[in-house]
């Protein structure tokens, strides 16, 4: 049995809907993935407003290129993840100067604002804090690099000075811990 959260459509259903290309398909796609993709963007761009702009740009790219998605090359989520990470990186590169200033300004307030924001999020927040605490430092680093920042295995091996094969096994171990904690 696969663990499918909430009432997600299966990937096959979603891909089929995407090809139809109507507004309802967009709505389902957005509802299924926007929060996770926004989470990935926010790891790179902590400013809520900018992150929302990047999310918007990303979804427009995803939609306009939807027929380019090729299931034989990977999961739909992985494909979207790449678009989101690239859009974030493009943004960070082009707006480097402006960003520096804005991030500096917002970094301190982001966390406070979030804390005050939403009471229903508190459950998630406590949960996620526990998960992050449970993960070892190097496991968290590994997930950050591969998942949120989109580093390749080779880059990670080089950055952490570990053999390529070790990246894979450690990644597996890190994600096993994550999966156990999230269940």
């Amino acid at each position: 049995m696969s663990m499918v959260t909430k009432t997600r459509h299966t990937e096959e259903e979603l891909v089929e809907m995407l090809k139809q290309g109507n507004r309802q398909a967009f709505s389902v796609l957005y509802d299924s993935y926007s929060r996770a993709l926004f989470g990935v963007i926010k790891k790179n761009i902590p400013d809520d407003e900018i992150a929302e702009d990047v999310l918007q740009d990303s979804f427009i790219k995803i939609w306009n290129n939807r027929l380019m998605y090729d299931a034989s090359k990977g999961r739909l989520y992985t494909w979207m993840l790449n678009i989101v990470r690239n859009t974030s990186i493009d943004y960070l590169r082009s707006k480097q100067n402006k960003m520096d200033e804005r991030i500096q300004r917002s970094e301190n307030t982001v966390h406070e604002a979030n804390r005050a924001n939403n009471t229903e999020q508190n459950i998630d927040r406590i949960g996620i804090k526990k998960i992050v605490d449970e993960l070892k430092e190097d496991q968290r680093k590994l997930i950050d690099l591969a998942y949120f920042e989109g580093y390749t295995q080779e880059e990670i091996a080089e950055k952490l000075s570990i053999p390529l094969g070790t990246v894979k096994t450690r990644m597996r171990a890190a994600l096993m811990v994550l999966r156990k904690l999230i269940k």
């Binding site: 996770a36 926004f38 949960g127 996620i128």
Partner: peptide, 9 residues
């Protein structure tokens, strides 16, 4: 789920 926690556009 991991990325979703904490993320509400």
């Amino acid at each position: 789920r991991f990325a979703e926690a904490d993320a509400n556009p």
